[in-house]
Amino acid sequence: MLFENRNEQALAETVSQYGVRCRAVARNILGSEEDAEECMNDALLSAWNAIPPAHPKHYGAYFQTLVRNFALKRYAAAHAEKRGGGQMTLALAELSECLASGENVERTIDRRIMLESVKRFLADLPERQRNLFVRRYWHAAPISDIAVDFEMSEINVKVTLSRIRNRLQKHLRKEGLL
């Protein structure tokens, strides 16, 4: 509501309520507290610009998704640089923020199909396994933290995740996506 009223207090409230989780996601991806903080600031700016007209139902998940996307972009850029991408890679990354996606239509369609397939896969998973999967591959939480939160042993977490991945692979093959 504060965002829609263009009240700057909305930023402080967001940080207060979701800051910890959002920083944890970015930190898990990037491994750096400073980079996580920058991702948080980028996400807040993005949300300020997007709301309105956007009306997210789940503010927490919405901000975490923003932070995660920024973190993944930073991660991709950093690894491209390490692979010898040089300034060109960084430049492309900078341009990607203002340019339209370089993906073609076919790839976008494939991505949509893949997304729907993954959604169906997650919907079919038992809730506990789905939470485990999302916690690991969405929040990028460490195995040890997952084991503590789910009250499982680390070995059990690894085995369960392995089985979920195998199940996902079979699911994607069955739907012709692999």
């Binding site: 989780r21 997210p56 139902k57 789940h58 927490g60 998940a61 919405y62 975490q64 998704t65 995660r68 996307n69 993944l72 991505r111 893949m114 997304l115 993954v118 959604k119 997650l122 809730e127 506990r128 789905r130 939470n131 485990l132 999967f133 999302v134 916690r135 591959y137 969405w138 929040h139 939160d149 789910f150 009250e151």
Partner: peptide
């Protein structure tokens, strides 16, 4: 791609324990 999964899944995974 996982960023576009339903927000309910993200919320549920955040604190199931």
């Amino acid at each position: 791609l996982l960023s576009e999964i339903p927000a309910e899944y993200v919320e549920a995974a955040a604190a199931p324990q």
